[in-house]
């Protein structure tokens, strides 16, 4: 087991990279499968110093729900931002910084949350606090910053907590 762990430090990453390679080749052949697997083995092996522990996923099925929620929100976000850009004057817009205290602890979960915040309605994640206990988020138009914070916490963070922790 330990030998296998040392040889394949991140089996899921290897699988993901192999599938990515096959999709990049855009076709199926034994050649590309073998080469994809070689890359999938080599890349985690070379970069293993940066992945000290294996990220754990508690509820894999929840990921599908999360992706659907995020995709829906991205479409809404686009229309919302387009509306603000086109029809709202700069004087009427109230940009704001919002602090989001984090309940998430694992770096992977926080990374996904920060990425999601950037892709969804009127918010860009700008920074993390010195010890990683809060996220700094910039809002394009937030008359009510508390509502934005509560929305992010209930809509994304609660779901990510179920998935990762």
């Amino acid at each position: 087991m330990t030998f296998l762990r040392r040889l394949l430090p991140h089996p899921y990453l290897t699988l993901l990279l192999t599938v990515t390679w096959l999709m990049l080749v855009n076709g199926w052949s034994l050649n590309s499968l073998v080469f994809g697997f070689l890359l999938g083995w080599l890349i985690p092996f070379v970069t293993r110093a940066y992945w000290p522990q294996q990220p754990r996923v508690r509820a894999p099925l929840k990921i599908i729900e999360y992706i659907l929620v995020v995709f829906y929100d991205i479409v809404v976000a686009n229309i919302e931002v387009a509306r603000i850009v086109l029809f709202k004057s700069n004087a009427n817009r109230t940009p704001a910084w919002v602090t989001i205290p984090l309940d998430l602890r694992t770096p992977e979960a926080i990374t996904v949350l920060a990425g999601t915040i950037t892709m969804t309605p009127g918010t860009v994640s700008a920074d993390v606090s010195a010890e990683g206990h809060a996220l700094l988020v910039h809002c394009l138009d937030a008359p009510n910053p508390e509502a934005v914070r509560d929305d992010i916490k209930t809509r994304y963070e609660a779901r990510l907590k179920e998935i990762f922790e």
Binding site: N78, I79, N90
Partner: peptide
């Protein structure tokens, strides 16, 4: 159109995604 640097970030990150 947007008038401060942080707000300008919102344009390319979102509208261009769709």
């Amino acid at each position: 159109k947007l008038n401060d640097p942080m707000s300008r970030l919102h344009g390319p990150t979102k509208a261009s995604t769709l």
